[in-house]
Design a binder for these strands. Sequence first.
RNA 1: GGUCCGUUCGUCUAGGGGUUAGGACACCAGAUUUUCAUUCUGGUAACACGGGUUCGAUUCCCGUACGGACUACCA
Length: 511
Amino acid sequence: MREVRVRFAPSPTGALHIGGVRTALYNYLLARKHGGTMILRIEDTDQTRFVPGAEEYILESLAWAGIEIDEGVSKGGPHAPYRQSERKVIYKQYADQLVNDGKAYYAFDTEQELDAMRERLKTQGSSDQQYSSGTRNSMKNSLTLSAIDVKEKLDSKTPFVIRLKVPVNEEIKLVDLIRGEVNVNSSQIDDKVLMKSDGMPTYHLANVVDDYLMKISHVIRGEEWLPSAPLHVLLYKFLGWEKEMPQFAHLPLLLKADGNGKLSKRDADKAGFPIFPIDWTDPKTKEFSKGFRENGYLPQALVNFLAFLGWNPGTTQEIFSVKELINAFTLERIGKAGAKFDIHKAQWFNQQYLRAKTDEELSEYLFNSLKTENIDCSVEKAKKICAAMKERVTYPSDFWELGKFFFRAPTQFDEQVVSKKWNDDTTKFLGVYLDEIKKLSLVTAENSKSLLEKTSLITGIASGKIMQTFRVALTGGASGPDLMMTMEIIGKEEVTSRISFALDNIKVRVS
RNA sequence: GGUCCGUUCGUCUAGGGGUUAGGACACCAGAUUUUCAUUCUGGUAACACGGGUUCGAUUCCCGUACGGACUACCA
């Protein structure tokens, strides 16, 4: 097997879609598995779609996800530059070569003329309106114009593009590592523009030239490129690079969770989950897109989730560290069908990764929230809270969101529980409990528990009957972690004042 | 419209000519628990359809349907 060199080649036109992150991940996994090289190339040949900040966004997103770049933009390397806009002269050279070899030609058609051609074909009922072997002879190009005319146009700086002269009726075979053999007849392919009138190459020329020059061994990209892959094969052939042609692997698409179709920001917004790695505000439209990072997803969890969208190891193991992923990953085990993006599973992965952390690591998350809330807390207390909350959080912010009551006495009480279960037994039980707890010097989970039993004996009320109202009195909410531990954490002062407050403020509803 | 790609529980998927079609998420139920959650146990639930080939097809082949991608001087 030749040296593995793969590339992730996004264009800086906005936020990096989560599907792009998965593509990058698979590239990265393959590179790491074979001790190869992961290259980041920026495909910015469309100047009209360039969005400032997008490249930085891509870099930051990949770094956050732990996808390391060995060579490329921001990193440098033997094949620099890695930004296509900076490689203009290189592409021109190969485009010229193709023209000289008779594999490509100049075309001078204006936009209006192209439109007219398509319109004409349409009204004729033709099934395709492509600029191809069937139409090129009726257009304005170096194939139909005299050599003198062409020279004159070129000299007078008439805008032109260079088009590939796609042969007629030739079977083009392409072996895709995921889909197997794909055959396309060349008559189906149009005379793609290789060089645009602004002197920039199109994606097709640029990616083939760069992949060759950068010695790419595997092209792993989204399925949307499959239809143009035969064209790329043709280009390799025409350029004389057939032997060095990389292997192709076209990844199945990420689809929306319900209904059909490609996963879009619209759908994600509607369902309330992100589809971009990190927050992004479009500098032009000011449109905001939320990110997985800011929404509390751990990068490892997201990576694990993403890896399983379209790939699986063939075992029942689901939790994989990046190292394990690298080890287990093979292109052969990538599926063919599109995968629906179900955020539930991502949440589950997030929970799993959160739970695997130590109380100490977890308390960092809590401290983050406490800092913005301006609340002081000892490390010991934070760790205890995290230990108690660990099994019930999905996101790091949940430690605060679900555990506010550790720091703030309730002012409101769960309506449902109060109206259903708050009764004379509750007030009686809590009254006695309050008196007893005041006698303790320190409240621990243990002694508050035995006090519970003691109070039960004194009052003759089973503790089970009042536990829910007890919790509401203490925390305001109907559910939460172990109550005794909660009492230990908030301490005697808080426990007594909260019980008193509840007793004074919750009205008994006579049923 | 044309070309290409795809189709196993609701979702991610394993499997593969003869299986009780397996796992995970979600969902439901029971158990545990001071509540909720956790945990444990159990359950509902799938081979798109029609033709072949075959003793036998969900698996192979061909169609159909459905879905998707592409069809720009965008990537």
